[in-house]
Simulated assay, not measured.
Amino acid sequence: MVEIDPKRSLQMSRIRSADTKPEILVRRAIHARGFRFRLQRRDLPGRPDIVLPRHRLAIFVHGCFWHQHQGCKLASTPKTRQDYWEPKLAGNVERDARAVGALEAMGWRVQVIWECDTRKPDRLAARLDAIFSKE
């Protein structure tokens, strides 16, 4: 059995699954564009972070580490306990792919906005412009 470090346990307990800083930045930017949306729709596969029902658009705001953003410096693999982290992170990526596929099969447009895109306002604005110009 692996000894659990109390400091690490405290750190991990503070990681949020909803209302994260990147998610709030995206929500504010979408709202400023005049769009109204729903949050965390439990009746949809993968429970998208932001849902625009009128536009049949589901948006996931993914953390680069937790969802392993390819080519991103924030998506590193921890050096310790790799036997734990590698299957966990790979499972997250597989679950994301299943959710996207299920939503698309239901006729939804699905977009993913990465945490690194939210760190620079101009990148986020360009990303949202690209998403909403497809309307």
Rank of each mutant, 00 (worst) to 15 (best):
R27I: 04
L25Q: 10
A32M: 06
L89P: 04
F60E: 02
K21L: 14
I24A: 03
S9C: 08
R109D: 02
R98V: 14
R119F: 03
K73Q: 05
P121Y: 02
H62V: 01
A99F: 12
T77D: 00
L57V: 08
L128T: 10
A32R: 15
K134V: 14
Y84T: 07
D83G: 11
G71E: 07
L74Q: 11
W108K: 04
R54I: 02
E23A: 05
R109Y: 03
V26Y: 07
K7E: 14
S76R: 15
I131C: 13
W114D: 10
F60D: 02
W108G: 05
A105V: 07
F65W: 15
W85I: 13
M12L: 15
R16Q: 14
A32F: 01
I131W: 13
V26S: 03
C72M: 01
I50W: 04
I4F: 12
W66K: 11
I4M: 12
C64R: 14
A130H: 14
V93H: 00
R98K: 15
M12C: 03
L39G: 00
L89D: 07
A32P: 01
F60K: 04
S13N: 07
R123D: 12
A126W: 03
W114G: 06
L89E: 05
P87A: 09
R98P: 00
K120N: 14
D117T: 09
F132D: 02
V61Y: 13
I131A: 12
C64P: 08
P48M: 03
A130W: 14
L124P: 04
A102W: 05
W114R: 11
Y84P: 01
K21C: 01
F132N: 09
G91V: 08
Y84R: 11
R123V: 05
R28Y: 08
K134P: 01
A125G: 08
E135A: 15
T77E: 08
E135G: 15
Q68P: 02
V51H: 00
L128E: 07
E135M: 15
A75V: 09
G46Q: 03
P48S: 04
A102M: 09
D83W: 13
S17D: 10
S17C: 07
P53D: 04
I59M: 10
G34S: 11
W85M: 08
R54Y: 00
V26A: 07
P78W: 12
D5F: 11
H55Q: 10
R41D: 06
L10V: 00
L124H: 07
G34M: 12
A130K: 14
K120Y: 09
K120P: 00
Q70T: 14
L44C: 07
G107R: 05
R56A: 01
Q68E: 06
